[in-house]
Design a protein around this nucleic acid. Structure first.
Length: 266
DNA sequence: CTAGATGTTAAGGT
DNA sequence: CACCTTAACATCTA
């Protein structure tokens, strides 16, 4: 479930299990999980290093290497991290395993849409990936948000455009739209300043609440407030405001759940 | 057996 | 040029 809140929790998990530990080995289970780097080069840059700091930008996790540079991770659709000790079974689909003195951290990704790499400079990496401001960056203002949205396009597609704002994916876009009562295909050019402000506030509120609820963990949505659409985001799901069945449509090429009564198309 | 799934990106169309 | 849609990637599950 790797959108911003999930990756934020993975980052915290990474800190708990890998920060300040020396990497004694790296094992690549599947080369396809590597981003423009060979297994040998990855090992050369990571083995013998300690992870000295972490950083997250949108859906990307970065970890600073004491030997220089940053390890980068993107989790695609099905990636996550799993720590395990010597003697414990290695998780299935462990594509890149980092070994420490007596335990390991696995980068797990069944579908192989995610990537692990190493870059020299974190800021340059963000630029090269053409990522917009991180949705939860405290320095990111409503004014900048309005500018980032631009003048044209369907609201859901724009929210999910990582070059405009980094971190929002299909799932959380639906929640933000539901909470602001906006139809997914609303033209961003038609939003009022008040609506833009509301979307910005909802984005931050939804992300903070989801991180707190344990985003990334198994069925964490049950821990979200009952007013959240995410708890009902499945076939037969009901509008939390009592308007009956949610509708399903395709927007921005992705399956979209919404309540036609709360979110009418104007 | 088939369809669809939290992401990204290339390719083709309007 | 701006925007939209579709396909593709790899694998699992409903």
């Amino acid at each position: 479930m790797p959108e911003l809140p999930d990756v934020e929790n993975y980052t915290r998990y990474f800190k708990r299990h890998a920060l300040k530990k020396t990497v004694t080995g790296v094992h690549v289970g599947d080369k396809r999980a590597l981003a423009k780097i060979s297994a040998g080069e990855l090992a050369r840059r990571v083995v013998g290093s300690q992870f000295t700091a972490t950083r997250r930008h949108g859906k990307h996790l970065l970890a600073r290497l004491s030997k220089g540079g940053w390890l980068t991770m993107h989790f695609g659709m099905t990636g996550y991290l799993a720590a395990f000790k010597d003697g414990q079974a290695e998780p299935k689909y462990d594509r890149v395993r980092f070994d420490f003195r007596s335990d390991h951290l696995g980068y797990i990704d069944p579908r192989l849409f995610g990537r692990v790499g190493v870059v020299d400079d974190a800021d340059a990496f963000v630029k090269k990936q053409r990522l917009g401001p991180d949705a939860l960056d405290p320095r990111f203002t409503v004014k900048e948000f309005r500018a980032a949205l631009g003048k044209k396009g369907g609201l859901k597609a724009v929210l999910m455009d990582q070059s405009k704002i980094a971190g929002i994916g299909n799932i959380y876009a639906d929640e933000i739209l539901f909470q602001t009562r906006l139809h997914p295909l609303t033209d961003v050019g038609r939003l009022t300043p008040a609506q833009i402000k509301a979307v910005f506030a909802a984005m931050r509120r939804v992300f903070q609440a989801s991180i707190k609820a344990g985003a990334g963990a198994e069925s964490f949505t049950e821990k979200l407030p009952k007013s959240y659409l995410l708890r009902q985001r499945e076939k037969g799901g009901q509008c939390p405001r009592g308007h009956g069945a949610l509708h399903v449509m395709t927007a921005a090429g992705r399956t979209t759940y919404y309540c036609p009564l709360c979110q009418p198309r104007k």
